[in-house]
């Protein structure tokens, strides 16, 4: 398999509701390599979520080429996209989107159920994943009984269920306080590195920028890549105290 996990060129997207057209993406060219942790930043309304949804095979682009894990996903139908998502992509959402009323391990198990794991295997695997994110002692708690940070860890465990190659996260720290946001993000980063996962994170949160291998800026519907210098600039602008050394 090639080292390119994501390869896109010329992706365009316009929302149409009635007579109102909102043109959001005007030709996205990007490439993400295996094992990279790439951050996608940009002003509010710039289309970050839209792009992440397209990368996650939830939305379809109007135009352009998109290869994910060597599959031309722009040709997949709804059912094939669903299958592609559950087998290859793990999602972490801003507001967790856990299933209320289900215990922490049951939340993780749902993703494995979708993949057709036998129930016992799925149960054992769910508990193992909770252990990985440091929540083995909260496995029986319902999501309402967990702190925000713990909820995001459960969501992280669910995203890792089924061992997907690619993890997509939309503002994973935005619903968390600074400390637990950073902690959750560090966990994501650590696990992704140790398991060899590729990660794309949409974020506003400059405190976690130091965890990125690369930062892509979405401006005017196009991508500007941050160089190492731009990244340092970004950190400086944000007055960050966290350095790469703190994180590893």
């Amino acid at each position: 398999m090639s080292q390119q996990i994501i390869l896109s060129s010329g992706i365009e997207k316009t929302y149409r509701s009635g007579s109102i057209k909102t043109s959001v993406l005007h030709g996205i060219d990007m490439e993400v390599l295996r094992g990279e942790c790439v951050f996608l930043v940009g002003p509010s309304g710039s289309g970050k979520t839209t792009l992440l949804s397209i990368l996650g095979c939830i939305l379809s682009p109007d135009r352009g080429l998109l290869r994910i894990l060597d599959h031309d996903v722009s040709t997949l139908n709804t059912k094939e996209k669903a299958r592609f998502r559950r087998e290859n992509i793990g999602f972490v959402f801003q507001r967790f989107h856990l299933f209320n009323g289900l215990r922490a391990w049951e939340n993780v198990k749902v993703a494995l159920d979708l993949l057709g794991y036998p129930s016992r295997t799925a149960q054992a695997e769910s508990r193992r994943l909770l252990d990985l994110v440091g929540l083995s002692d909260r496995a029986e708690h319902r999501s309402s009984q967990l702190s925000m940070g713990q909820r995001q860890r459960v969501a992280l465990a669910r995203a890792l269920a089924g061992d997907p190659e690619l993890i997509l996260a939309d503002e994973p720290t935005a619903s968390l306080d600074a400390e637990s946001g950073l902690s959750a993000m560090k966990t994501l980063n650590r696990l992704a590195k140790s398991l060899g996962k590729t990660v794309v994170v949409v974020t506003h949160d400059s405190r976690i920028f130091s965890l990125a291998d690369r930062i892509l800026h979405l401006v005017d519907g196009r991508i500007n890549e941050s160089t190492a210098e731009q990244r340092a600039l970004a950190l400086n602008r944000a007055g960050q105290t966290v350095s790469a050394n703190d994180v590893r």
Partner: peptide
Amino acid sequence: VADFATLKAIGAENGQ
């Protein structure tokens, strides 16, 4: 609806 949407987002097909 939100739960079912999440289920779909993480890969559930209509059959499921």
